[in-house]
Design a protein around this nucleic acid. Sequence first.
RNA 1: GCCCCGGUAGCUCAGGGGAUAGAGCGUCCGCCUCCUAAGCGGAAGGUCACAGGUUCGAAUCCUGUCCGGGGCGCCA
Length: 580
Amino acid sequence: MTIKARITTLVTQALLQLQESGLLPADAVLPPVELERRAEASHGDFSTAICLILGRRLHLAAAQLAAAVAQRLADHPDIERAEAAGPGFVNLFLKDHVIREALIPVLDQGPLPTNLGRGMPVLMEFVSANPTGPLHVGHGRGAAFGATMANILSACGYRVTREYYINDTGLQMDCLALSIWLRYLGLPAHRWPPGLYEGDYIEHIAEALQHQQGMTLRPRALPDWSSWPEPGSSEAINQWLMRCQEILGPEAFAALRRFGREAILTDIREDLAAFGVVFDEWRYESELVACGAVDRVLTCLREAGQAYERDGALWFAASRFGDEEDRVLRRANGETTYFARDIAYHLQKLERDYQHLINVWGADHHGYVSRLKGALEALGAEAIRLEVILVQFATMVRGGRKISMSTRSGTFVPLRSFREEVGRDAARYFYMQRAPGQHLEFDVDLARSRSTDNPVFTIQYAHARIVRVFEQAMERGYAFDTRRAAAHLDLLQEPQEQQVQRLVTRYAEVLETACMHRAPQAVCQYLLDLAHGFHAWYNAHVFLTENDALRAARLGLCHAVRLTLQHGLELLGVAAPQRM
RNA sequence: GCCCCGGUAGCUCAGGGGAUAGAGCGUCCGCCUCCUAAGCGGAAGGUCACAGGUUCGAAUCCUGUCCGGGGCGCCA
């Protein structure tokens, strides 16, 4: 239990006592007590506006209520001082022993996991980039956010499964196969129909294909490209695809598609692993299609009267569920749309043993959310269990110049080169510094700087410094044990070490806040605060003093800080270096 | 045209009905005989875009306006 939860209970009990004593009406329904941490030291460790809220609801004088609450709490052994302030706030100052008692378990085991989630199984889907090319920096933000959020949920007692959904059916995969084949046959890209995939990676895959298959996918006579449909025409891609499939035959074409898919997935997997992002499940859309799940969904929607035929296509009545217009499920050519397959996928997700689903999507999908939820509702599924977190795009700034990212503009900075440029640690941290729903401006130069300008460096440096302190202690023959440290924590009376102790014991609250609000940026901010608190302390006082008891206590607090930094950095996917 | 996100310190952004609005960077002034000065302390810096409204109380909620970013396919 966090200190905050404990004190919240105390305040609630005080209010109940006021009800018993008649100061508050016995039949009043008490709103949940909320405690605030305020920056202002004179506002104590916690402050609450509960009396203002009650005063308004029950038409009572808030200041008098606050005084009564403060009076009830003042004698509690955990409370140093309780005072009514301003128009009706109650400010609470904790006894030092409350902080110390919360600190002692951290000395032994590091920060303890909280149990907010009570083991609830959660499926978290993120990245899920189409296997048509390497990841770019836009995917990087989703990857960093998904991985970090999953870590935080997990640290807060949820049972999290991390899933990557592979969109490996549909037109885009056909285009990938065609692109590889054209490159393999040596046709220069400027003669391809526009909309196909170019780039070095296509060439590498074509080379690998040749390496593996030789020239077996080459027709006896090279196609006379000039007789193929004009690349610029609107139907060029479809016609080129048809010709390609005629030449290769369905099986070879399918094999080509799989080859391209696996090559790209291998690349994506390696890229993510190097970014510290690991998945538990990789699900193929093609398997969903193969097992008939998509067809079943279409049948169900039709039977439910929520789908109809028009212009040769099958439509979902999305407008009945708050969408602007109805949406196509199956095209006139018989192909199902991405939308139809995604309904099947999410229906299947809901049927698996998860109580809650979280999707991390790029902000460009925002219009898609209501449509998907509508379809799930139409099928009688609990769409409410699906939570979609939209991650806004990131802008890169290098040398004062913006490099804008957009799906359409085609300015893709590959995640790999970006990661190699700024380093994994800075990349992961900077991506998480801002709320997911906010546009992010990524300062590449700042992320690269190896100085105090850079928050991730400040934090890592604090960790490395503590490691160094312990090395020095060893060299001087000072033994360290946590029990001795725990026994002398009461000697830590300097303002900086008081501050650091409070920061350390606040960590669990920060995690719970970050978890509930889906706000990993709170962890970044906290770690920076803790690092600053530590550096200030380090600068003001010598830890390795001659005084055995004081030294033990200071080393103990150092140790707790280090374990907390390490824990937080691990959640963010950032290294906690031994030295710098 | 419709939809989403935003406008808070010079810059990048937290906060998102409650007290004197915060952090990092930048600027200015200080601090090493000492465990990493890759550090620390202090100062200056604000009409929370604008106008109405709700409220005992609005940066926060509502409406409108202006400005910026993004999205709107029988692609995925």
